[in-house]
Amino acid sequence: MSSKRILFIHGNLDVPASFDSLLPLLLPWDMQCIDLEDDFNAWDATIPVTVRTVAERVVKAYNIGPDDLLIGHSMGGWIAAHVKELTGATVIQLSSWTDPRKVRAPIRQLGLIRAIVSSGVAQHPACISMAKRLYPFRQSRARIHAALDRVQRMNPAYMIWQYELIFSTVPPLTILPDLRIHDRHDMVIRFPDEPFINVPGNHKIHATNAAGVAEAIRGFLGM
């Protein structure tokens, strides 16, 4: 298959640099990483935040059409699935979902999430330090620690925006992604009910096992 562009959408509390290990393995495609924080900063605060309204903004901001390919990790894959619903673009999900019940989350109530984030507890240095100590996976520990440092400095309103687009209720998808790549033992998102390619590496497979993810993508693209 052919595609004029590959656009990457990062996950919750993450940054475009999370794809740095994967991008060189997919050359020579025309690739662009979307920065959701930039989109948040340009967001009209009067617009309700759902994955559908965010997908609409992404489509408009990046002029996405049916010839484009989107690769989204976790929350980014959830957005990408809704971009496909709007445009017919090809979508590959990494460690993501089409059924929100697949998200392993101790708290799903947006009111409670807003209260916790607004209180500053989630960004308190003691909580960040504890999260670092408890993270069990050596391969991705450095990246997770860097992500937690970013969380400590993150605009709380941007944190809330992300959880609103994850947990706000939207109509079910009518078109499913074209390919799912997932680790069956992912600790964050349960594996899909639909067919998927199992790539070990836990939730951040594009960073911990970029070669395995790239092989699956290149096979799908016929490269």
Rank of each mutant, 00 (worst) to 15 (best):
N41Q: 11
R114N: 04
L23I: 09
P16C: 03
N198Y: 07
A115W: 10
K4P: 02
I64L: 11
W161T: 12
Q93E: 15
I181C: 08
E215W: 00
E215N: 11
D193S: 15
G72R: 09
R150V: 04
T169N: 05
I217P: 02
R101A: 12
L25H: 01
V170I: 15
A157C: 04
I9G: 02
I47V: 15
L69H: 09
A210T: 04
R5P: 00
A210S: 11
D44I: 03
G120A: 11
I175P: 00
F167M: 08
N41C: 04
E215V: 01
P16F: 09
R190M: 12
P125V: 07
R184F: 12
I160W: 00
A211I: 02
A55C: 08
S18Q: 10
H10L: 10
P66I: 08
D14R: 15
R5N: 15
C127G: 00
V188N: 06
D30W: 04
R150L: 05
G120L: 13
L36R: 10
F137K: 07
E37P: 01
D44A: 05
R5T: 05
Q123H: 01
P24R: 14
V199F: 12
D149C: 06
M1W: 07
V151P: 07
L176R: 14
A81V: 06
R218K: 12
W161M: 04
A210K: 03
M31Q: 08
A147T: 14
I144K: 09
L22G: 08
D14S: 15
G201D: 10
H206Q: 15
V151K: 14
V51K: 07
S95T: 14
H145E: 15
K60F: 10
F19H: 06
H124E: 01
M187R: 12
D35V: 02
P28H: 14
A210C: 03
